[in-house]
Design a protein around this nucleic acid. Structure first.
Lengths: 344, 344
DNA sequence: TTGTAAGCGTTATCAA
DNA sequence: TTGATAACGCTTACAA
C-alpha cells in the first residue's frame, strides 16, 4: 500500500511531473488538451490525492487555521461547558471548509506560546476567542499572519476584531428591567477585567442605572467566574439576604441558569419574586424552564463573520494592512418568561 | 521578518545542520557537549521553532489527528447544538495535546470523501464520532491509519471502538421507570438505525418491558430526530393524547428537555403527571429545572479513552493490529427530580 | 564527533 | 507545449 505521488501519476500518464503539477494547479493553458485528458485519467485511475504538506513546504502555506479557545483554570481542558464556544466553532468550520481550509483546535499551553503552534504548523491565519494577557497578543503579532480576535477590546490595528457592543448590551438588559418597573437590580457576573467584555456590560449596567436616576450599589454586584455555580450561589444569597432586590442581570446565560436555580432553591420564584435577564442567548436559553429572557448575540453570525474576514485577509495578502478595524454584530433583546413587570 | 530555519541555527552556532537536527531529535550521543550547548544557545537566540510540516514530509507523519463529527442534515454545520460533542472534543484535545499532537476538526463533505483529508493532510490517526454509512468505513480502512470509532457498533477488527453498553443503558432507564411503578412508558427517540446506538437503547427498553411482563406498544414510540424540537412536539402530543401514559424515556437529554417542555406547555406537570428520564447526562442536565433524572455516560472519560487508545496505537506502530476490540465506559443512573414513584 | 548529501512530495523557473 | 531541475525545511544514512 505504497503512497502514490505526483511521480506515479506522471509516469502512468507518460508525461512529466511538471505537466501534472500544472493541471493540478489549473494552469491548463500551459498544457495541451490531450495531456490534460491523460493526466486526469491517471489521477482517477490511481486515486491520487496531492499532499498538502508537500505543497505547503514550497508555497509556504498550510491551508490551516488555528482556533484558540479559552481553557479552564488548570489549563487542562477547553472551556466547552459553555456551549457558546461550540456554536461559534461550528460556524467557523463551516465557512473555512468551503474554501478548502481546515481548522486546528487548540488551547494555549502554559509553557508553549501561541507562537509555537503558529510557526511550527505554518498556520495561514488564526482566530482567537476571548481575552488573554497582553503577552499573548504581542506574541501573536510576531507570528505575522492574519489574526482575527473575537470578543476582545484590544486596540491594535494589527488585528481585526469582531464582537458586539457589550456596553450597549449591558445597557439594554438593565434598561429592560428598569422599563419593567424594577429599581433594585443586582448584577451577577464573571470577573470584571479591564477591557474585557464583562467590564463593558458592567459599564452598560451602570449607565442604565444612572440614566434612570437609580443609585448604583456596589453591594449589588456579585463578581466571580462565568459559571453556573457562581450563578447558583449568588441566586441563593440574593433570595435569602437581598429581599429588597427584584431583578438581576446575569452577564451570561449560563450564569442566569444558576441564578434562577439558586432563587428557586431558596424557595422564591422567577419571575414571581425575582426577574432575571441573561446575556448571549445560547440555544439552551429557549429550552430552559422558564425560557430565559436575554440579550441575544448572534453567535453563529459572529463566527461566520470572523471566519470570512480572516479568509479575505489571507486571500488578499496584497494589502497586508487589509485588517478591518472592527466588525460589530447587532444585538437584540429577546423577551421570554423570566422578567415580569412590577407596578411599584 | 524572514523565517528562520535550521540552517540559520547551524550557521549561527557554527556547526552543521545535521548536528542541529541531532540535538533537536535528542540524539545527543552523536554530538559533543560543547556543540550541544552552542546549538541550544543559538536556538534560544534566534527563537527557532522547527517546522512540523517539513519534518512531516520526511518522517511521513503530521502529528495531526482528525476528529470527524456528525453534521446537520444540510451538511453545512457541525452538530454542535448538542453539547455532548463539545464535551468529548474538549477531552480529546486535552490528552492529545500532552503528546504534542493537534486535532483537526472536520465534517465530512458530500463530494469529498474522508479519505481526502486523511491522505492530503497525512493524518497520524483519526477519531470518528457517531455512525455513518458503510461506505465511509470502507474508505477509512483504505486510509490505513489507526482509527478509533466512538459510539459505533461496526464490527470490524480494523477499528478500535469505544462506547458504552447502550442496550444496558436503555434497559436501566426503563427499568428505573418500572421500578417506580410505571407501566405505560413511552419512548421518544431519534431515528432507530440498524446498529446505531439508538437502536440498542430501544432494544434495552423492550427488554426491560418484557422482563416486567409489560406489553410493548409500538404506538408508544415517537421516532424522529435527536433534537429538542422533536422532544417538544412529542411532549405536547403525549400530554394531550396519551393520558394513560405515566412516564417517558427520552434517548438523549436534549430530547428529554423538549419532552418536559412540551408536557408543561400542554398544562401537565413533570414529574407530577409524567415522569421523564433522559440519557447522556450532559452538563445541562443538572442545571435544568427540574433537574433531569438520566442515565449518565461519562462523556469526558469516553473522549479521553478514545484519545489514549488512538495515541497508543500510533505510537506502537509495531503491532499494526494493536487495535483493541472495544472499550466500554461504565454507565450510571443518576436520580434527580423528573421521575416520581407512583402507587399505581 | 562532525559534516555532506540524498531524499520526502510538491511548485516553479528556465531551457529546450 | 514540454520536461529537467532547483528549491522548500527537515531527517538520516554515510563518509570523513
Amino acid at each position: 500500500m505504497k503512497k502514490i505521488t505526483i511521480k506515479d501519476v506522471a509516469r502512468n500518464a507518460g508525461v512529466s511531473i511538471a505537466a501534472v503539477s500544472y493541471v493540478l494547479n489549473g494552469k491548463e493553458n500551459k498544457v495541451s488538451q490531450d495531456t490534460i485528458a491523460r493526466i486526469h485519467e491517471s489521477i482517477k485511475d490511481l486515486n491520487y490525492i496531492p499532499s498538502i504538506t508537500a505543497r505547503g513546504l514550497v508555497k509556504n502555506t498550510s491551508e490551516l487555521i488555528g482556533v484558540i479557545i479559552p481553557q479552564t483554570e488548570d489549563r487542562k481542558q477547553l472551556v466547552f461547558e459553555n456551549p457558546f464556544y461550540s456554536e461559534m466553532i461550528s460556524a467557523i468550520e463551516g465557512v473555512v471548509r468551503e474554501d478548502g481550509y481546515h481548522i486546528i483546535l487548540a488551547g494555549v499551553d502554559k509553557g508553549k506560546s501561541y507562537l509555537d503552534i503558529s510557526t511550527s504548523r505554518n498556520l495561514d491565519g488564526a482566530i482567537i476567542m476571548g481575552i488573554y494577557s497582553e503577552q499573548l497578543y504581542d506574541e501573536c503579532k510576531k507570528a505575522n499572519i492574519p489574526i482575527v480576535l473575537i470578543d476582545s477590546y484590544v486596540h491594535d490595528h494589527y488585528f481585526t476584531n469582531v464582537g458586539i457592543d457589550d456596553e450597549l448590551g449591558g445597557y439594554m438588559a438593565t434598561k429592560h428591567l428598569i422599563d419593567n418597573g424594577h429599581r433594585n437590580i443586582g448584577l451577577v457576573t464573571g470577573m470584571i477585567r479591564k477591557d474585557g467584555v464583562v467590564e463593558k456590560r458592567f459599564l452598560g449596567y451602570k449607565r442604565a442605572l444612572q440614566e434612570a436616576g437609580l443609585f448604583y450599589n456596589p453591594d449589588y454586584v456579585f463578581e466571580s467566574s462565568v459559571s453556573y455555580e457562581h450563578g447558583h450561589s449568588s441566586g441563593v444569597l440574593i433570595a435569602e439576604k437581598y429581599t429588597e432586590m427584584t431583578a438581576v442581570f446575569a452577564t451570561a446565560d449560563m450564569v442566569a441558569f444558576g441564578v434562577i436555580r439558586g432563587i428557586k432553591e431558596a424557595g422564591k420564584d422567577v419571575p414571581g419574586d425575582f426577574s432575571v435577564i441573561g446575556f448571549d442567548d445560547i440555544s439552551m436559553a429557549h429550552m430552559f424552564l422558564p425560557p430565559l429572557t436575554t440579550v441575544k448575540q448572534q453567535i453563529f453570525l459572529k463566527g461566520e463573520t470572523a471566519a470570512r474576514l480572516l479568509i479575505d485577509q489571507i486571500r488578499n495578502k496584497s494589502g497586508a494592512s487589509a485588517a478591518i478595524a472592527r466588525s460589530e454584530i447587532p444585538l437584540q433583546l429577546v423577551e421570554r418568561e423570566t422578567v415580569r413587570k412590577i407596578s411599584k
